[in-house]
Design a protein around this nucleic acid. Structure first.
Length: 132
RNA sequence: GAUUCGUGUUGAGCAGUUGUCCCCGAUUAUUAUCGGGGGAGGAAAGUCCGAACUCCGCAGAACGAAGUGCCGGGUAACUCCCGGGGUGCUGAUUUAUUUGGUACACGGAAAGUGCCACAGAAAAAAUACUUCCUGUUGAUGGCGGGCUAAGCCCACCAAAGGCGGGUAAAGGUGAAAUGGCAGGGUAAGAGCCUACCGCUUCAAUAGUAAUAUUGAAGGCAGGGCAAACCCCACUUGGUGCAAGGUCAAGCAGAAGGUUUCCCGAGUAUAUUCUCGGGACAAGGUUGUUCGCCUUGAACUCCUUCGGGUAGACCGCUGGAUCCCGAAAGUAAUUUCGGGACAAGAUAAAUAACUGCUGCCCUCGACUUCACUCGGGGGGACAGAAUUCGGCUUACAGACACGGAUCAUUU
RNA sequence: GCGGGAGUAACUCAGUUGGCUAGAGUCACAGCCUUCCAAGCUGUUGGUCGCGGGUUCGAGUCCCGUCUCCCGCU
């Protein structure tokens, strides 16, 4: 497995898994309330690992803006996923995480940069690690 | 050279690191790794039109509904494009004229129905009303005469009003008023007559046509609204890739509905079996009806309720395709020749970051400006989802062409 | 992706076949009533009829374009 990669096997793609996360999962907010993460932990299961997805509501902006938010969220997770992945494998759990923007939308921040998104995502990942 | 408008083209480049979707190849052997190649737009947007393609329906006809609407051409087709005509607005110029720009849903109001508030005599029927002119009557008034004065009588003049006739010119209100203006004419007036302008009809000429020009005739027929109903001509069946098809996996079925009858033939026989015809019934018929089709019985048809799956593949990208050149045509466009292959995802890839160059803005330094150096900031609108042709809307900057205005030089 | 619907006062809605100054209730403000408050009564304020064009003498209404919001279809 690549150190900084994010292949299709590490992403949530089926409708069943999404239903599981949204019906049984918990919600966490970042410190500035701009982003949120919905996650669900399955203990003592094989194969272990983490699967993620990045969801943006249609109401928060136009297609170009929504695509950029998803790319920045994915980039932030991809570059920092190493520690949380290894911890999940050691504890033998399957973890599903969905990252989404919460209060942020196209009207209040038309331009957004990676250095604004990265600390927020790190904050969310650290909060999830304490729950493992 | 500057500003502004219109049309067209374009929509920063190079390098590095990390990542992702598709295809090809190799290794490995069912899980990956490595290498190579490709990976958003002029609007991909809005979904406003038109098609391809799909399934459903379909012998056909009538009715309905929707759309389009000057003429000709282009196109697979069009609420599109090109060319021409007409009307309105506007500019230039001139003796007359001629011409540029721009907008137009631009068939029909002497087939019918409806509406036209307020104001106004009247809003579509042309008549009534007022006024005007005139005949008659004449309250009353004036002047004159007669009888002695008051008063009465006679004649004449003026005249409110009444009754009858003529006329539709005038009525100033309105968005819109029954051809306009001038002259004649008349009791007053009137296309009643005449000239000019406008209108209608017919003919000739030019043009494929819309239409234009010229001539003759008619003395004028008639308001507006059809983006009100409508009439005329033309076009259109419905459905949209979440269409539709194949495979895999998976569960559980239940209730209800329906009419048969008659005639003929076949075989030894026929209420019973088979075939054909007719009647009747039920169902289907994707706008409605006629008609058409299926069935005459049920594990199989129809209706209602309930249960399961939501994975893979095809459709899927080579096409009314794009580029270059030549020819035809005023043009839209077409034909011929040569060349190219250019995303195909599905919780949805096409990216993120850094550096340099180039463009624009701003601040600072020698400092009056320019040049130069350094710091900071900006770089639009916007993201394929079956595919094409248009339309509409959004858009920083750059380039080319054309028009207008201003300044300078020759 | 495809197909439908809506937009009128701060809020909830009317507005007929195009016609006179676009109405009703709630809210707000002022006055009356009450010792005071509430309730009640009277009056007032508040509108780019989402936006831009067109047809018409005249448009909230008819037509075209556009913006925003809502709903349905596996």
């Amino acid at each position: 497995m690549k150190q900084f990669g994010l292949s299709s096997k590490e992403r949530i793609k089926s409708k069943n898994e999404f239903d599981l996360v949204y019906s049984a999962g918990e919600i966490l907010f970042s410190s500035s309330q701009k982003f949120k993460a919905v996650f669900f932990i399955q203990r003592e299961s094989e194969p272990s690992g983490i699967k993620t997805a990045f969801a943006v509501s249609r109401k928060s902006g136009i297609a170009v803006w929504r695509n950029r938010i998803k790319r920045l969220l994915r980039e932030s997770y991809r570059l920092n996923k190493k520690e949380i992945c290894s911890e999940a494998v050691i504890k033998k759990m399957r973890v599903f995480i969905v990252f989404s923007p919460n209060t942020i939308n196209q009207k209040n921040s038309r331009k957004i940069l990676l250095k604004e998104v990265m600390p927020e995502v790190n904050d969310l990942m650290n909060k999830i690690r304490t729950r493992l």
